[in-house]
């Protein structure tokens, strides 16, 4: 019953309007808490304070990938069940996912400057994220180019699913390409276990970022529904004028 209720955009809007203030408040609080914990986390013995960028970088990377997951789920909803909100959910997720991926790339690049001595290294993980970012831009361009929202969403849904299937293949091939060429000088992350003094704030930040994602996503879905209403009202206006024989 609940799902059918939510399929009705008006009910969905009411729900969003009720939930959004709480979600926003929770996001702000969790960010304040997480950032405070992150500030107090000890510096890395090797990298110093730059390691703190990881508190933004890692959650952003997770959400960049989750954004594509949300888009793929919405794509299934659009193509299989033709759910009216799935369209909206997919379209709203694309720019948000792209923004998180972009944050991941920028923070990675800022971290790379003191660590690698250059802003960009064709490291396997960063490169995979870059390809993900390009795919996001492609989907956004598709939405941007389509004049009729319905046709645009179906095309974008197909592209999202193709992307979802392709992303692991891309990831694998980029890893393979990178190890093939791996320059010896590149510093490699990971390997050692992460200390709880770093892990706890990282997890808090990850939850805060996830809440931020959903807050932004719900708000963007609301905007998109309203935008489509404005569009149909204007279409009706043109129609009425035609019928009035003006």
């Amino acid at each position: 019953m609940a799902v059918i209720d939510l399929a009705n955009p008006t009910r969905f809007l009411n729900l969003v309007n009720r939930v959004l203030p709480w979600l926003t408040a929770a996001t702000v609080l969790l960010f304040a808490f997480g950032l405070a914990r992150a500030m107090n986390a000890p510096d890395d013995y090797q990298q110093g304070a730059t390691v703190k960028i990881m508190f933004l970088h890692v959650p952003a990377a997770w959400l960049g990938m989750m954004g594509w997951g949300v888009m793929s789920a919405a794509a299934l909803g659009t193509l299989v069940w033709r759910h009216p909100l799935a369209d909206v959910a997919g379209k709203a997720a694309a720019p948000i996912g792209a923004a998180f991926t972009f944050i991941c790339l920028v923070t990675g690049s800022l971290w790379g400057r003191p660590t690698w001595g250059t802003y960009w290294v064709w490291d396997a993980r960063l490169t995979s994220m870059l390809v993900l970012f390009l795919l996001y831009l492609g989907v956004m361009a598709l939405y941007w180019t389509a004049e009729d929202p319905g046709r645009g969403s179906r095309a974008a849904a197909i592209l999202s699913l193709v992307g979802a299937v392709n992303l692991p293949i891309i990831k694998f091939s980029v890893d393979w390409w990178n190890t093939l060429h791996q320059p010896a000088s590149v510093f490699r992350m990971g390997g050692s276990t992460i200390d709880p003094s770093i892990l706890t704030p990282l997890l808090i930040m990850a939850v805060a970022f996830t809440l931020l994602f959903f807050t932004l996503h719900l708000a963007a879905m609301r905007n998109e529904i309203l935008r489509r209403r404005v569009r149909s009202m204007r279409l009706m206006q043109a129609q009425e004028l035609a019928e009035a024989g003006a």
């Binding site: 206006q237 043109a238 035609a242």
Partner: peptide, 18 residues
């Protein structure tokens, strides 16, 4: 031509006659 009320509307929304 009777289109003054539609001045702000994108032309994409018009019918063939409009």
């Amino acid at each position: 031509v009777g289109l003054a009320p539609l001045s702000g509307l994108p032309a994409a929304y018009l019918s063939a006659g409009q």
